[in-house]
Simulated scan of single mutants.
Amino acid sequence: MARALLLTLLLLAAVAAPAVPASAQAPGWRHSYADPTPDGRFTDIVTTGPKDGWAAGVAGDALLLARYDGTRWVRQAAPAGYVPGGPHPRLAASGSSNVWLISSQVFRFDGTSWHRVGALPRLDEVLDAETRGPSDLWIADGDDTLARWNGAAWSSVKLPANARALARSGQRLWAAGYRTSGPGVGKDMEAQPAAMLLKGTTWTLTPTPTYRFPIPAPEAEALLHHVAGTWAVGEHTFNHGEVSPEPTDTAILLRWTGARWSKVKIPAREKYCCPRIAPAGPGRVLYATSGYGLKQSWFVRPGAAPVTLAPLPALAGAPAKQFASIEAMAAGGWAAGQLSANGGWRRAVIVRATG
């Protein structure tokens, strides 16, 4: 009788025990949401706090929209009046009552419902967007201008370099991309990284490192693809197949020190393309590349040993040989994109890095 009572108490204690906080779990990737729509892909994700986030993407021409409620991701209906097609959806947010959805149209979520702002101005493409409030939205399309909504009208704002990415750090706005003039640009180097800070109403270039291959490479360039808070990531590459021996492409990871952007060592050269980053606490960044199991992923902090993340486990019920392609990342360890597998199986997914 005593033994049976003891076993019962132990089982009750196990059931009632609180879940281990994410911060106390071993560092690694976990599945959070897989949309059932075939051939879907999330193209952006934002968070406004630990209990609120949005992800947007497409399945064919249809919009995929999901919201995080602090516990799980829930599929949402498209805003009224949303027209399918156009650029892949992008998101921007400065709070739970200021969330923007940008495609061929622009919508703003005020905390209760979505409202259409207006047609998007003519852009080559929509690469990134950022906001500081209901009357302050910026959109980058890869050239040396930004589209800006001031609450009443759109305008075109000139930049000192080309911008591919935007980020907000507090109330500061950053634009990152590349420049084709200035230090380090020459016969064997067509572009160098550029990071611009909005000071008042003027975008100003800030100091960034320069890059050059030891072996001259044709059409070489170094550029930044994404910026997150005070971190930026990009690549140093060239037009392959025209020289022998060829140098090796390298990824770029930079951190703003308050006076300049400085290089941060990456633990290893990624096997797959397109590194992405997201803030992961004071002085730390989550760095990841697409691949099988997202195996090339680390928490990186200057001056400290990188923390390797355990791979993403296979998604139950999906075919084998699962390749995770990350399209975007957000604070909180979130990453969104597409999971593909044998037989042409593809689904939009959201995963999370914890630890």
Rank of each mutant, 00 (worst) to 15 (best):
A251D: 14
G258S: 04
G258T: 11
L159Q: 01
K187H: 14
S104Q: 14
S340N: 11
C273R: 09
E130G: 08
V157D: 03
R276E: 10
I326R: 08
D143T: 11
A62N: 15
A278H: 06
H115S: 08
R276N: 10
T201G: 14
A191R: 09
D61A: 15
Y68F: 15
G53H: 00
Y287H: 12
L64N: 02
R347I: 07
W149C: 02
K321H: 15
L253M: 07
T248K: 11
A320K: 12
A320P: 07
L253W: 00
P275Y: 02
P84W: 02
P306R: 11
M329D: 07
E235A: 13
R72C: 00
F299P: 12
A353N: 04
A175D: 03
V106G: 00
G57L: 02
Y178K: 06
K263R: 12
T48V: 06
I350Q: 09
R41F: 08
W231K: 01
R116G: 04
L6N: 09
E242N: 13
P193S: 10
A220C: 05
L309E: 03
K199E: 15
L63D: 04
V300M: 08
R41N: 14
A217I: 04
K263E: 11
A17T: 05
A320D: 13
A324K: 09
W345Y: 15
E221M: 13
G241H: 09
D249C: 13
M196L: 11
S103R: 01
S297Y: 08
A280L: 10
R347G: 03
G186R: 08
Q76A: 09
R116N: 06
G111D: 01
A119G: 10
R122T: 09
H31Q: 15
L12P: 05
L127T: 07
S155I: 04
L12R: 08
W138M: 01
V285Q: 02
I266K: 03
P160M: 10
S32F: 06
S290C: 11
A220V: 05
V349Y: 03
G170Y: 03
D143Q: 11
Q105C: 01
A280F: 13
A55N: 02
L101C: 00
I266T: 00
V300H: 04
G133E: 01
G317W: 02
L120I: 06
P207E: 01
V106A: 05
A324P: 10
V243I: 15
Y68V: 07
R148A: 11
E270P: 14
L10N: 07
K263G: 05
N150T: 05
A77F: 09
V126K: 01
